[in-house]
Amino acid sequence: MFDFNTLIIDDSEIDRYILARQLKQLGISQIAEHASAKSAKDYLVALREQQAGVFPKLLIVDMHMPLMGGVELLRDLRPWFDSGPLQSAQVLMYSASEAPEEQAEAMALPMVKGFLVKGASIEQLQQSLSKL
């Protein structure tokens, strides 16, 4: 039903694996994975330099990563979302914590369209995606 070009940014390999597997079960086939904010950003910069680069439509970003967290990364990429190559992309923030203040902090960013607690079942993931 949906096949977004998807970018997962999470420092935990297992969490990336689980999420990617769940996404594949939901029919999403084009998935890129990055283990840090920096490597994700390098990847996006490289894409911009290629003429025919295809930008992700969905970013699933871990809120808590070493060196640069999800919120910081998205603030950094703000111009890309406002009027750049990520203009039509949407973000699901991903966190192990269900603390309301974390969720509020994430949802305050304009490009963040949903908040997902790690360990979500496939049904919950599907529900989050269907709201996009």
């Binding site: 969490d15 689980i18 914590s97 790690k118 360990g119």
Partner: peptide, 20 residues
């Protein structure tokens, strides 16, 4: 916070993996 994040995240992964 550490309890919620660093302990929970591997636990939820275990939970998901064992289900599969």
């Amino acid at each position: 916070y550490v309890a919620s994040h660093d302990l929970r995240s591997p636990l939820t992964a275990i939970r998901r993996l064992i289900e599969w």
